[in-house]
Protein backbone atom coordinates (compact mmCIF):
# COMPACT_ATOMS: atom_id res chain seq x y z
CA UNK A 1 0.00 0.00 0.00
CA UNK A 2 2.04 2.90 -1.29
CA UNK A 3 1.64 6.50 -0.16
CA UNK A 4 0.31 7.40 -3.60
CA UNK A 5 -2.52 4.89 -3.23
CA UNK A 6 -3.42 6.30 0.14
CA UNK A 7 -3.27 9.85 -1.17
CA UNK A 8 -5.53 9.00 -4.07
CA UNK A 9 -7.98 7.34 -1.74
CA UNK A 10 -7.99 10.19 0.77
CA UNK A 11 -8.21 12.80 -1.96
CA UNK A 12 -11.21 11.09 -3.53
CA UNK A 13 -13.13 10.83 -0.29
CA UNK A 14 -12.40 14.36 0.80
CA UNK A 15 -13.04 15.83 -2.63
CA UNK A 16 -16.37 14.01 -2.88
CA UNK A 17 -17.56 15.14 0.53
CA UNK A 18 -16.39 18.68 0.00
CA UNK A 19 -17.35 19.17 -3.61
CA UNK A 20 -20.72 17.42 -3.68
CA UNK A 21 -22.76 20.46 -2.51
CA UNK A 22 -20.75 22.61 -4.91
CA UNK A 23 -21.82 20.41 -7.78
CA UNK A 24 -25.44 20.74 -6.75
CA UNK A 25 -24.94 24.49 -6.59
CA UNK A 26 -23.46 24.45 -10.07
CA UNK A 27 -26.37 22.48 -11.51
CA UNK A 28 -28.81 24.87 -9.88
CA UNK A 29 -26.94 27.83 -11.26
CA UNK A 30 -26.91 26.43 -14.79
CA UNK A 31 -30.57 25.72 -14.54
CA UNK A 32 -31.34 29.22 -13.39
CA UNK A 33 -29.37 30.67 -16.29
CA UNK A 34 -31.17 28.48 -18.78
CA UNK A 35 -34.51 29.45 -17.35
CA UNK A 36 -33.75 33.18 -17.34
CA UNK A 37 -33.81 33.45 -13.59
CA UNK A 38 -31.17 35.22 -11.56
CA UNK A 39 -28.98 32.42 -10.31
CA UNK A 40 -28.27 31.65 -6.68
CA UNK A 41 -24.64 31.48 -5.66
CA UNK A 42 -22.90 28.17 -6.27
CA UNK A 43 -22.19 28.15 -2.56
CA UNK A 44 -25.86 28.22 -1.64
CA UNK A 45 -26.05 24.51 -0.74
CA UNK A 46 -23.21 24.94 1.77
CA UNK A 47 -25.07 27.78 3.42
CA UNK A 48 -28.17 25.68 3.64
CA UNK A 49 -26.32 22.79 5.24
CA UNK A 50 -24.53 25.08 7.68
CA UNK A 51 -27.75 26.70 8.72
CA UNK A 52 -29.35 23.33 9.31
CA UNK A 53 -26.50 22.07 11.44
CA UNK A 54 -26.92 25.00 13.78
CA UNK A 55 -30.58 24.47 14.38
CA UNK A 56 -32.13 22.42 17.16
CA UNK A 57 -33.26 19.04 15.96
CA UNK A 58 -37.01 18.52 16.19
CA UNK A 59 -38.05 14.90 16.23
CA UNK A 60 -41.54 13.58 15.88
CA UNK A 61 -42.86 12.12 19.10
CA UNK A 62 -43.22 8.66 17.63
CA UNK A 63 -39.84 8.58 15.94
CA UNK A 64 -37.91 5.41 16.78
CA UNK A 65 -34.12 5.08 16.96
CA UNK A 66 -34.20 3.84 13.37
CA UNK A 67 -35.31 7.31 12.33
CA UNK A 68 -32.33 8.90 14.03
CA UNK A 69 -29.80 6.37 12.78
CA UNK A 70 -30.92 6.52 9.16
CA UNK A 71 -29.25 9.84 8.21
CA UNK A 72 -25.92 8.58 9.45
CA UNK A 73 -26.36 5.27 7.64
CA UNK A 74 -27.30 6.97 4.39
CA UNK A 75 -24.46 9.44 4.65
CA UNK A 76 -21.99 6.70 5.53
CA UNK A 77 -23.12 4.60 2.58
CA UNK A 78 -22.62 7.52 0.22
CA UNK A 79 -19.15 8.24 1.54
CA UNK A 80 -18.15 4.60 1.15
CA UNK A 81 -19.55 4.69 -2.38
CA UNK A 82 -17.47 7.78 -3.11
CA UNK A 83 -14.43 5.91 -1.86
CA UNK A 84 -14.74 3.09 -4.37
CA UNK A 85 -15.70 5.06 -7.46
CA UNK A 86 -12.57 5.90 -9.41
CA UNK A 87 -13.24 9.55 -10.09
CA UNK A 88 -9.63 10.73 -10.04
CA UNK A 89 -7.39 7.72 -9.84
CA UNK A 90 -7.71 3.95 -10.08
CA UNK A 91 -5.21 3.21 -7.33
CA UNK A 92 -7.82 2.81 -4.66
CA UNK A 93 -6.99 0.51 -1.74
CA UNK A 94 -10.64 0.40 -0.73
CA UNK A 95 -11.82 -1.14 -3.98
CA UNK A 96 -11.24 -4.51 -2.29
CA UNK A 97 -14.18 -3.69 -0.06
CA UNK A 98 -16.69 -3.56 -2.84
CA UNK A 99 -16.81 -4.06 -6.57
CA UNK A 100 -19.46 -2.56 -8.80
CA UNK A 101 -22.13 -5.09 -7.81
CA UNK A 102 -21.49 -4.30 -4.17
CA UNK A 103 -21.66 -0.63 -5.05
CA UNK A 104 -25.15 -1.10 -6.41
CA UNK A 105 -25.97 -3.02 -3.25
CA UNK A 106 -24.60 -0.18 -1.18
CA UNK A 107 -26.79 2.34 -2.94
CA UNK A 108 -29.73 0.00 -2.41
CA UNK A 109 -28.94 -0.16 1.30
CA UNK A 110 -29.05 3.60 1.50
CA UNK A 111 -32.36 3.68 -0.32
CA UNK A 112 -33.83 1.02 1.91
CA UNK A 113 -32.84 2.84 5.10
CA UNK A 114 -34.21 6.06 3.75
CA UNK A 115 -37.53 4.46 2.89
CA UNK A 116 -37.78 2.72 6.23
CA UNK A 117 -37.02 5.97 8.03
CA UNK A 118 -39.70 7.68 5.99
CA UNK A 119 -42.22 5.08 7.13
CA UNK A 120 -41.15 5.34 10.73
CA UNK A 121 -43.17 8.31 11.85
CA UNK A 122 -46.25 7.02 10.14
CA UNK A 123 -47.41 10.08 8.25
CA UNK A 124 -49.32 10.00 5.01
CA UNK A 125 -46.57 11.72 3.07
CA UNK A 126 -43.77 9.68 4.53
CA UNK A 127 -45.26 6.36 3.50
CA UNK A 128 -46.21 7.78 0.13
CA UNK A 129 -42.67 8.93 -0.46
CA UNK A 130 -41.25 5.58 0.64
CA UNK A 131 -43.56 3.71 -1.68
CA UNK A 132 -42.73 5.88 -4.65
CA UNK A 133 -39.03 5.76 -3.94
CA UNK A 134 -39.10 1.99 -3.88
CA UNK A 135 -41.25 1.96 -7.00
CA UNK A 136 -38.65 3.94 -8.91
CA UNK A 137 -35.82 2.10 -7.22
CA UNK A 138 -36.82 -1.45 -8.00
CA UNK A 139 -36.47 -0.78 -11.71
CA UNK A 140 -33.60 1.68 -11.52
CA UNK A 141 -31.41 -0.64 -9.47
CA UNK A 142 -31.34 -3.55 -11.94
CA UNK A 143 -30.99 -1.06 -14.78
CA UNK A 144 -27.89 0.37 -13.14
CA UNK A 145 -26.60 -3.14 -12.58
CA UNK A 146 -27.06 -3.98 -16.25
CA UNK A 147 -25.30 -0.76 -17.26
CA UNK A 148 -22.36 -1.73 -15.13
CA UNK A 149 -22.44 -5.29 -16.49
CA UNK A 150 -21.83 -4.07 -20.02
CA UNK A 151 -18.75 -2.20 -18.91
CA UNK A 152 -17.76 -5.20 -16.81
CA UNK A 153 -18.04 -7.51 -19.79
CA UNK A 154 -15.97 -5.19 -21.95
CA UNK A 155 -13.20 -5.15 -19.40
CA UNK A 156 -13.79 -8.67 -18.02
CA UNK A 157 -13.96 -7.64 -14.39
CA UNK A 158 -16.53 -6.20 -12.04
CA UNK A 159 -14.12 -4.08 -10.08
CA UNK A 160 -14.96 -0.49 -10.86
CA UNK A 161 -11.37 0.69 -10.63
CA UNK A 162 -10.24 -2.01 -13.02
CA UNK A 163 -13.05 -1.12 -15.43
CA UNK A 164 -12.02 2.51 -15.48
CA UNK A 165 -8.41 1.47 -15.84
CA UNK A 166 -9.21 -0.76 -18.79
CA UNK A 167 -11.47 1.70 -20.57
CA UNK A 168 -9.13 4.66 -20.19
CA UNK A 169 -5.85 3.00 -21.00
CA UNK A 170 -6.58 1.26 -24.28
CA UNK A 171 -6.47 2.73 -27.76
CA UNK A 172 -9.55 4.50 -28.93
CA UNK A 173 -12.33 2.02 -29.49
CA UNK A 174 -15.98 2.61 -30.09
CA UNK A 175 -18.37 0.52 -28.12
CA UNK A 176 -21.85 0.59 -29.64
CA UNK A 177 -23.14 -1.20 -26.57
CA UNK A 178 -22.06 1.72 -24.46
CA UNK A 179 -24.35 3.95 -26.49
CA UNK A 180 -27.33 1.98 -25.25
CA UNK A 181 -26.09 1.90 -21.72
CA UNK A 182 -25.34 5.60 -21.74
CA UNK A 183 -28.99 6.31 -22.51
CA UNK A 184 -30.06 3.90 -19.79
CA UNK A 185 -27.61 5.33 -17.32
CA UNK A 186 -28.80 8.88 -17.92
CA UNK A 187 -32.37 7.84 -17.22
CA UNK A 188 -31.31 6.02 -14.06
CA UNK A 189 -29.30 9.01 -12.91
CA UNK A 190 -32.25 11.32 -13.35
CA UNK A 191 -34.62 8.99 -11.54
CA UNK A 192 -32.35 8.05 -8.68
CA UNK A 193 -31.41 11.61 -7.91
CA UNK A 194 -34.93 12.95 -7.84
CA UNK A 195 -34.52 15.02 -10.98
CA UNK A 196 -37.04 16.09 -13.58
CA UNK A 197 -38.68 14.22 -15.35
CA UNK A 198 -39.19 11.78 -12.46
CA UNK A 199 -39.21 14.07 -9.48
CA UNK A 200 -38.73 17.78 -8.99
CA UNK A 201 -36.09 18.71 -6.43
CA UNK A 202 -37.21 22.30 -6.34
CA UNK A 203 -40.76 21.95 -5.13
CA UNK A 204 -42.82 20.67 -2.29
CA UNK A 205 -45.74 20.02 -4.55
CA UNK A 206 -47.34 17.32 -2.49
CA UNK A 207 -48.88 15.16 -5.13
CA UNK A 208 -45.74 14.69 -7.13
CA UNK A 209 -42.89 14.65 -4.70
CA UNK A 210 -40.85 11.57 -3.97
CA UNK A 211 -37.56 12.45 -2.36
CA UNK A 212 -38.86 15.44 -0.46
CA UNK A 213 -41.79 13.48 0.88
CA UNK A 214 -39.43 11.10 2.60
CA UNK A 215 -37.51 13.89 4.26
CA UNK A 216 -40.51 15.86 5.49
CA UNK A 217 -40.12 14.82 9.11
CA UNK A 218 -36.41 15.50 9.25
CA UNK A 219 -34.98 18.71 10.59
CA UNK A 220 -31.70 20.32 11.55
CA UNK A 221 -28.61 18.09 11.59
CA UNK A 222 -30.50 15.03 10.41
CA UNK A 223 -31.90 16.94 7.48
CA UNK A 224 -28.49 18.45 6.78
CA UNK A 225 -26.96 14.99 6.62
CA UNK A 226 -29.73 13.76 4.37
CA UNK A 227 -29.31 16.74 2.05
CA UNK A 228 -25.60 16.29 2.01
CA UNK A 229 -26.02 12.59 1.32
CA UNK A 230 -28.35 13.45 -1.57
CA UNK A 231 -25.71 15.79 -2.98
CA UNK A 232 -23.11 13.05 -2.56
CA UNK A 233 -25.38 10.62 -4.30
CA UNK A 234 -25.69 12.88 -7.31
CA UNK A 235 -21.94 13.42 -7.27
CA UNK A 236 -21.35 9.67 -7.07
CA UNK A 237 -23.69 8.90 -9.94
CA UNK A 238 -22.04 11.47 -12.14
CA UNK A 239 -18.66 10.03 -11.20
CA UNK A 240 -19.86 6.52 -12.08
CA UNK A 241 -21.00 7.88 -15.43
CA UNK A 242 -17.66 9.55 -15.96
CA UNK A 243 -15.79 6.38 -15.05
CA UNK A 244 -17.84 4.28 -17.44
CA UNK A 245 -18.30 6.56 -20.42
CA UNK A 246 -15.57 9.22 -20.39
CA UNK A 247 -12.79 7.72 -18.28
CA UNK A 248 -9.94 9.50 -20.09
CA UNK A 249 -7.82 11.59 -17.83
CA UNK A 250 -8.21 9.45 -14.76
CA UNK A 251 -4.88 8.64 -13.10
CA UNK A 252 -4.12 5.01 -13.94
CA UNK A 253 -1.88 2.52 -12.21
CA UNK A 254 1.06 3.31 -14.42
CA UNK A 255 0.97 7.03 -13.80
CA UNK A 256 2.74 8.70 -10.93
CA UNK A 257 1.71 11.63 -8.77
CA UNK A 258 1.62 13.84 -11.86
CA UNK A 259 -1.26 11.85 -13.26
CA UNK A 260 -3.19 12.41 -10.08
CA UNK A 261 -2.43 16.10 -10.25
CA UNK A 262 -3.71 16.30 -13.81
CA UNK A 263 -6.79 14.26 -13.05
CA UNK A 264 -8.15 16.83 -10.61
CA UNK A 265 -8.78 19.64 -13.12
CA UNK A 266 -9.90 17.06 -15.68
CA UNK A 267 -12.52 15.78 -13.29
CA UNK A 268 -13.59 19.34 -12.52
CA UNK A 269 -14.01 19.97 -16.22
CA UNK A 270 -16.03 16.80 -16.72
CA UNK A 271 -18.24 17.63 -13.77
CA UNK A 272 -18.88 21.12 -15.13
CA UNK A 273 -19.91 19.60 -18.42
CA UNK A 274 -22.08 16.97 -16.77
CA UNK A 275 -23.74 19.56 -14.54
CA UNK A 276 -24.55 21.76 -17.51
CA UNK A 277 -25.90 18.76 -19.40
CA UNK A 278 -28.06 17.82 -16.46
CA UNK A 279 -29.42 21.36 -16.29
CA UNK A 280 -30.26 21.25 -20.00
CA UNK A 281 -32.11 17.96 -19.64
CA UNK A 282 -34.03 19.27 -16.68
CA UNK A 283 -34.94 22.44 -18.50
CA UNK A 284 -36.17 20.91 -21.71
CA UNK A 285 -38.16 18.05 -20.23
CA UNK A 286 -41.41 18.14 -18.39
CA UNK A 287 -42.21 16.32 -15.17
CA UNK A 288 -43.84 12.98 -15.87
CA UNK A 289 -46.88 11.73 -14.10
CA UNK A 290 -45.82 9.43 -11.30
CA UNK A 291 -47.26 6.44 -13.10
CA UNK A 292 -45.18 7.16 -16.15
CA UNK A 293 -42.01 6.96 -14.08
CA UNK A 294 -41.91 3.13 -13.99
CA UNK A 295 -42.34 3.14 -17.77
CA UNK A 296 -39.32 5.37 -18.05
CA UNK A 297 -37.35 3.10 -15.77
CA UNK A 298 -38.50 0.03 -17.65
CA UNK A 299 -37.20 1.69 -20.79
CA UNK A 300 -33.88 2.28 -19.07
CA UNK A 301 -33.76 -1.33 -17.95
CA UNK A 302 -34.53 -2.60 -21.43
CA UNK A 303 -31.94 -0.35 -23.01
CA UNK A 304 -29.33 -1.62 -20.60
CA UNK A 305 -30.24 -5.23 -21.39
CA UNK A 306 -30.16 -4.39 -25.10
CA UNK A 307 -26.71 -2.95 -24.59
CA UNK A 308 -25.68 -6.26 -23.08
CA UNK A 309 -27.10 -8.17 -26.05
CA UNK A 310 -25.49 -5.85 -28.56
CA UNK A 311 -22.22 -6.33 -26.78
CA UNK A 312 -22.54 -10.07 -27.11
CA UNK A 313 -23.51 -9.85 -30.77
CA UNK A 314 -20.92 -7.38 -31.92
CA UNK A 315 -18.25 -8.42 -29.48
CA UNK A 316 -17.75 -4.80 -28.59
Amino acid sequence: MSPLNLTTQALEIIAAIAAAPLFVGWVNQCRAWLQNRSAPSVLQPYRGIRKLFHKDAVLAERASPLFRIAPYMVFGAMVLAAAIIPSMGTRLPLTVAADSIALVGLLATARMFMSLAAMDVGTAFGTLGARREMMVGFLAEPALLMVIFVAALISQTTSLAAIAEHLSSQTLALYPSLAFTAVAFTLVLLAENARIPVDNPATHLELTMIHEAMLLEYSARHLALMEWAAALKLFNYVCIGVALFVPWGVATESQGPLGLLVSVPVLALKLCGAGAGLAVIETVSAKLRVFRAPELMATAFLFAVLGLLVHLLLGA
Binding site: F53, D56, A57, V58, T123, L128, A130, H204
Partner: peptide, 24 residues
Protein backbone atom coordinates in the same frame (compact mmCIF):
# COMPACT_ATOMS: atom_id res chain seq x y z
CA UNK B 1 -22.32 21.34 16.63
CA UNK B 2 -24.61 20.27 19.42
CA UNK B 3 -26.83 17.34 20.27
CA UNK B 4 -29.97 19.17 21.27
CA UNK B 5 -33.16 17.36 20.41
CA UNK B 6 -36.72 18.47 20.89
CA UNK B 7 -39.76 16.23 20.55
CA UNK B 8 -42.83 17.55 18.80
CA UNK B 9 -45.89 16.22 17.02
CA UNK B 10 -45.17 15.09 13.46
CA UNK B 11 -45.04 17.86 10.89
CA UNK B 12 -46.66 16.16 7.86
CA UNK B 13 -46.87 19.40 5.87
CA UNK B 14 -48.66 21.10 8.72
CA UNK B 15 -51.56 18.69 8.81
CA UNK B 16 -52.63 18.45 12.41
CA UNK B 17 -55.24 15.69 12.55
CA UNK B 18 -53.08 12.83 11.49
CA UNK B 19 -54.29 9.37 12.39
CA UNK B 20 -53.15 5.83 11.83
CA UNK B 21 -55.51 5.27 8.91
CA UNK B 22 -53.68 7.87 6.86
CA UNK B 23 -50.58 5.75 6.51
CA UNK B 24 -50.15 3.48 3.57
Amino acid sequence: YHRRVRRAPPWDCGFARLDARMQD
